[in-house]
Write a protein that binds this DNA or RNA. Structure first.
Length: 469
RNA sequence: GGUCCCAUCGUCUAGCGGUUAGGACACUGGCCUUUCACGUCGGUAACAGGGGUUCAAGUCCCCUUGGGAUCACCA
């Protein structure tokens, strides 16, 4: 195992959304490619906003996508004593100081500064305080350099630099004693020996502050790779109003994890003109250099296309396993007396784009009483079809070869014998067996249903037609 | 508003000084076909604008414009 160490560090304030999932994926991919370590760390220092449900939702999402972690999950809420220690160290070294300003005062100052067109930057009121003020609550601020520049060489964006005068003395510990993100992230990435930080580029502006903290603490600064944001169709940051953003919502909408992974990786990363990647290919081909610099729009259409691709090429037995819950939702429980689900799926794969469509398409195989679509029956199950349906049913009874190819021969011979075209018998049989005008190839349907069930359904259709005579 | 980031078809992108600017999704025309699909062949469609540098610029530099991010005792 190399000393490359990557981490995904979500805050448990909601489900795993597609943006976070992609960041996790990039980290996971690089760790796997380089034989490094992938760490999962839950950033729950904000006790008020963090929930256990969110933690579970995130873990569930990670597992669904197959992004297994090597270390963790670590919880920052378990590490508070560690952070306090480092805060004390900074305090003793004069690199941090107590700030007695109240949030309300600060808020006022900020508003005033904004109103006057000045930078909403901490004015440093408490920076020069010599004495501690007893019995007054205080937060702790990092004493940041007031001049000079802080620069870093971002692995995806290139070199980025900030004037230190733009940065203010950020609070590293709240007045209630809990630490703040920009501080804990530095301590953790340093103590967990994270070598490369891959995260969303909304963190770019935090980076110089964090670098200053690394330096003040005497830690080596990791490499940074800031990946672009994912946007909605209106080019605004992706949010709920653009539709589903939770990866688990996509599972529930019938998407396969491999489709989601494939889609996500191609949103912002590319390898020439390649579009389809197996997990193994991704691990093999993934590099940070392949990540683009600009934000990308989430395109559900393309995700859908990929999902269709993976359903079409998926292993029927595995798809059958994944399909079960969707079937149950529809009140169908494939049992031993019905056709084998995996076989049913082979007839449906190339016409379903989601597991939902697959489930809907499989329904008729398992319903003992086929539901006739009104329009379809009106056209294909009328008294006109009575003689043909009857003749076909009789012919089928004597037919031996029940393979799809054999059944095709049956139809050919039947048409010849009756002096009719396929179009005069096929559609009616289809509606008799499936209830609708769009279905898998009729030869396949008959082969899967078997002769008995096919005959039963034909008889029922004949009865139905007979009532119209 | 300050700071930072970004800019090739509608969308995702290839391109890393010399290309008829390629692929994919979507859209669309033909073919295949017992339905619906799949598949297949083809089509429409882009270098934001302006200055440089260079024999040569989508590729390098600058400006403009446009988008985004961030400015918390959130992460």
């Amino acid at each position: 195992m190399s000393d490359i160490r990557l981490r995904f560090a979500p805050s448990p304030t909601g489900y795993l959304h597609v943006g976070g999932a992609r960041t996790a994926l990039f980290n996971w991919l690089l760790a796997r490619k380089l034989g490094g370590t992938f760490i999962l760390r839950i950033e729950d220092t904000d006790v008020a906003r963090s929930t256990e449900e969110s933690v579970n939702a995130i873990l569930e999402g990670m597992r669904w996508l197959g992004l297994e972690w090597d270390e963790g999950p670590f919880f920052q809420s378990d590490l508070f004593p560690v952070y306090r220690e480092y805060v004390q160290k900074l305090l003793q070294e004069g690199k941090a100081y107590r700030c007695y300003c109240t949030p309300e005062e600060l808020e006022k100052k900020r508003e005033l500064a904004m109103a006057e067109g000045r930078k909403p930057k901490y004015d440093g009121s408490c920076r020069g305080l010599k004495e501690e003020i007893p019995d007054k609550s205080f937060a702790i601020r990092f004493r940041a350099p007031q001049d000079g520049i802080t620069a870093f060489d971002d692995l995806v964006k290139g070199s980025i630099s900030f004037n230190n005068e733009e940065l203010d003395d950020l609070i590293i510990q709240r007045s209630d004693g809990t630490p703040i993100y920009n501080f804990t992230v530095v301590i953790d990435d340093a103590t967990m020996k994270v070598s490369t930080v891959i995260r969303g580029d909304d963190h770019i502006s935090n980076t110089p502050r964090q670098i200053l903290l690394y330096e003040a603490l005497g830690f080596p600064v990791p490499r940074f790779a800031h990946v672009p944001m994912i946007l909605g169709s209106d080019k605004a940051r992706l949010s709920k109003r653009h539709g589903a953003t939770s990866v688990m919502a996509y599972r529930d909408m019938g998407y396969l994890p491999e489709a989601m992974v494939n889609y996500l990786v191609r949103l912002g990363w590319s390898h020439g003109d390649d579009e389809i990647f197996s997990r193994e290919e991704l691990v093999d081909k993934f590099t940070l250099e392949g990540i683009g610099k600009s934000a990308g729009v989430f395109n559900p259409e393309k995700l859908l296309w990929l999902n269709a691709h993976y359903i079409k090429n998926g292993d029927p037995a595995r798809l059958a396993e994944l399909l079960l819950p969707f079937l149950r939702e529809r009140g169908v429980e494939p049992t031993a007396d019905g056709p084998v689900l995996a076989t049913v799926i082979t007839t449906l794969q190339e016409r379903a784009r989601t597991m939902l469509e697959l489930a809907d398409g499989a329904l008729f195989y398992y319903r003992s009483e086929v539901l006739y679509d009104e329009a379809a029956a009106a056209k294909q199950l009328t008294s006109l079809q009575y003689p043909i349906l009857t003749a076909f049913t009789q012919r089928l009874a004597a037919w031996e070869d029940m393979t799809p190819a054999g059944i095709e021969v049956l139809f050919k011979e039947f048409c010849t014998a009756q002096g009719i075209k396929m179009g005069q018998v096929g559609p009616s049989v289809r509606v008799a067996l499936c209830g609708v005008t769009s279905s898998p190839a009729i030869y396949d349907v008959i082969a899967v249903l078997g002769k008995d069930e096919t005959s039963r359904r034909l008889e029922r259709a004949i009865s139905f037609v007979a009532t119209q005579l």
